[in-house]
Lab assay of single mutants.
Amino acid sequence: MATVKFKYKGEEKEVDISKIKKVWRVGKMISFTYDEGGGKTGRGAVSEKDAPKELLQMLEKQ
């Protein structure tokens, strides 16, 4: 499965596409929420050019 690499609050993070719950576009950025486990929801964003094609496909399906 594909992963998304991004920075959040200065920390490098990587999340599996299957854990992503919601995806939306903000200008040229793709924002998303994902399941961190333990009932927590994380947030992240990547630029449109750095987003994996699976993430862009999720955006188109909504």
Rank of each mutant, 00 (worst) to 15 (best):
I20Q: 00
D35F: 09
D35E: 12
K21D: 09
K49M: 12
V4R: 00
V26K: 14
K7P: 04
P52V: 08
G38A: 11
I17A: 03
Q62Y: 03
F6R: 00
K13N: 03
S47I: 11
Q62F: 04
R25C: 14
E54I: 05
K5C: 03
F32Q: 00
E36Y: 07
S47T: 07
V26T: 14
A2W: 02
K7Y: 10
E48Y: 09
E36R: 10
V15W: 00
V46M: 06
T33Q: 08
G42D: 14
G39D: 15
K40C: 15
V4T: 01
M29D: 11
M29N: 11
Q57T: 13
Q57K: 07
G42K: 08
K40W: 14
I17E: 02
K40A: 15
I17H: 02
V4C: 02
F6K: 00
D50T: 10
T41H: 15
F6C: 02
K61Y: 07
K21R: 10
K53W: 13
Q62N: 05
M1N: 15
F32K: 00
Q62C: 15
Q62W: 03
A45E: 15
L55F: 06
F6D: 01
S47V: 06
D35M: 13
G44Y: 03
M29K: 05
G44H: 01
K22T: 14
K53N: 11
V15H: 01
K53P: 08
M1A: 09
V46D: 00
S18Q: 11
E36L: 13
Q57F: 12
S31E: 12
E48S: 06
K40G: 15
T33V: 05
A2G: 11
G39R: 06
P52L: 04
A2D: 05
S47E: 08
V46G: 01
R25S: 11
K22V: 14
W24K: 03
E36D: 08
T3C: 08
K61R: 06
Q62G: 15
L55K: 00
K21G: 13
S31C: 09
T3W: 02
G10H: 03
K5L: 03
M1K: 10
W24Y: 04
E60Y: 09
K21Y: 15
K19H: 14
I17P: 02
E54K: 04
K53Y: 10
M1L: 06
K22A: 15
M29Y: 13
T3Q: 03
Q62A: 10
P52T: 05
S47R: 13
E14F: 03
D50L: 14
V23E: 01
L56H: 11
D16V: 09
E12N: 06
W24S: 02
G44R: 00
V26W: 06
E54V: 06
G44C: 02
L56V: 14
V4N: 00
T33A: 11
V26S: 09
A45L: 05
E11M: 04
L56Q: 09
M58V: 08
G44S: 02
R43K: 12
K28L: 10
Y34G: 00
G10F: 02
K53R: 04
D35C: 15
T3E: 01
G37D: 07
G27M: 14
Q57G: 07
A2E: 05
K49P: 07
G10E: 04
K5Y: 03
S47M: 12
A45K: 06
V15Y: 01
K61H: 12
K13S: 02
E60M: 12
V46Q: 03
V26H: 11
W24C: 10
K19N: 12
P52Q: 04
K5M: 02
E11S: 05
A45S: 12
T41D: 07
S31N: 09
V15S: 02
K9I: 02
K49W: 07
E54G: 05
K40L: 10
Q57P: 04
G42W: 12
A2I: 14
S47Q: 09
K9M: 12
V15N: 00
M58Y: 11
A45I: 11
I30G: 00
V26I: 07
S18M: 07
M58F: 05
I17W: 01
S31I: 05
K61S: 12
G27Q: 15
L55R: 00
Q57M: 14
K5A: 02
E12L: 13
K22W: 15
P52E: 03
L55E: 00
L59Y: 12
K5W: 02
L56C: 15
W24R: 03
G38F: 08
Y34C: 01
D16E: 10
K49F: 11
Y8T: 03
G39W: 06
L56I: 12
G38H: 10
L56K: 09
T3F: 06
K19M: 14
M29E: 10
T3M: 04
A51C: 05
T33I: 10
T33L: 06
S47K: 08
K13L: 05
E36N: 12
Y8G: 02
K22P: 01
L55D: 00
K21I: 13
G44K: 00
E36Q: 14
S47C: 11
E36V: 11
Q57V: 06
I30N: 01
V15A: 04
E54D: 08
V23P: 02
V26C: 15
I20D: 00
D35T: 09
G27S: 13
G44M: 01
A51W: 05
V23Q: 03
K19R: 09
I17L: 10
K49E: 13
E14S: 11
